[in-house]
Design a protein around this nucleic acid. Structure first.
Lengths: 195, 195
DNA sequence: CATATCCGTTAACTTGGGTTAATGCCGAAG
DNA sequence: CTTCGGCATTAACCCAAGTTAACGGATATG
């Protein structure tokens, strides 16, 4: 996801860190402005309501990075939690280190540009899916686009990423199952069932 | 929304244009890579499904700008329509003009950075609302945050921005009305009814 | 081994939004 | 003036998802 040369450049600015599954790297309300680059593992960024409901913004994997725009750019407290869902290895860079480097070195600014554009495009896609697609459509799209992610996640977390409850996701999978069974009977195909 | 000095710098690159209400500035599927800066008026950026359903991504007002990331950064066709909903005055800049200027002049790159960060933060907020809030909560949040926008829009367009049908929005408003009536009777307040 | 915990599934019931259609209200065009 | 099209409202009906609860399987822990 992130340019290889950029990774090498950035590496010297931060420290590597091991975080077992379930570790909080950032907490909703924090002002910690760290920038995280994932070497290995998987984490979820999620909003938590006062009643304890959980909504997952995004997942971060190997060679992906995350920071809270709100914290870094606006100085607001982080609006979300960041927690590992697999044992992970992370490069952690203090926010101010990064911003000074970006201001001082032009090629970093250029690199940040393309990174931001990627982020914006991803967000645009996410907005599209949340706005225009039904939960079922979002699920089947995720299944085809990123089956590996689904394998690595619990169904609970998939559901909370899709914006529905685990019960609802179970029902959707059930419906899909009976639909594909029906199709198999009708057309007598024997394609193996996936997802 | 957009820095004043930046506006002046950019102005020389494009041409001003008048577009009456209902004009398409960009069409879903187009490869036109224009960058639009609004001087006056209001437009909606929206997705349209094959069945003709409409989902509004965002609105663009005075001193705000829009371009399709997909077109400019990835060369994809535009995923959305852009149509004025008020008579508007727009500064239109060809995409390649803008990109060459950004590559050649460092301060433009810097300015683009902060613009992209703003975009990303807005999208983050939108993602939060679509993911975590009910339609009713989204509506009341919009009412308090941006009452002016609601005044300028038809209820149809507000509904399609919230991701619901006009019928559903009418019901929500109805519920809110009877709720506030109830409260007025109970506490005998006489605050005027808004939105 | 027994126990506790977490996860996925299923059922029963509620609720919120979609769909369709009818109505009334403009404002624009003829 | 009349007519037409777009908009907001309301009603009736349907369906998808939320909520709660029960159950079974897997895994970890004593």
């Amino acid at each position: 996801m992130i340019d290889n040369r950029l990774i090498e450049r950035i590496s010297v600015l931060g420290t590597e860190r091991y975080a077992p599954k379930g570790t909080f790297l950032m907490r909703q309300g924090d002002h910690s402005d760290h920038f995280f680059l994932f070497r290995r593992g998987l984490a979820k960024a999620y909003y938590e309501t006062i009643e304890g409901r959980e909504f997952i913004k995004s997942f971060i994997r190997e060679n992906e990075c995350i920071a809270s725009m709100q914290v870094i750019a606006a100085g607001n407290p982080s609006p979300f939690n960041l927690m590992t869902v697999e044992d992970s290895c992370i490069l952690e860079i203090p926010g101010n280190t990064l911003t000074t480097v970006i201001e001082e070195e032009a090629h970093f600014s250029r690199a940040l540009n393309s990174l931001l554009i990627q982020v914006a495009m991803k967000k645009e896609q996410r907005e599209y899916e949340l706005l225009c697609l039904s939960a079922e459509q979002r699920y089947s799209m995720l299944c085809t686009r990123d089956p590996e992610l689904i394998r690595r996640l619990s169904q609970n977390d998939v559901a909370r990423y899709l914006g529905i409850t685990p019960v609802a996701l179970s029902r959707i999978r059930n419906r899909a199952r009976s639909k594909s069974l029906l199709n198999r009977e009708r057309h007598n195909t024997n394609s193996p069932h996936k997802c």
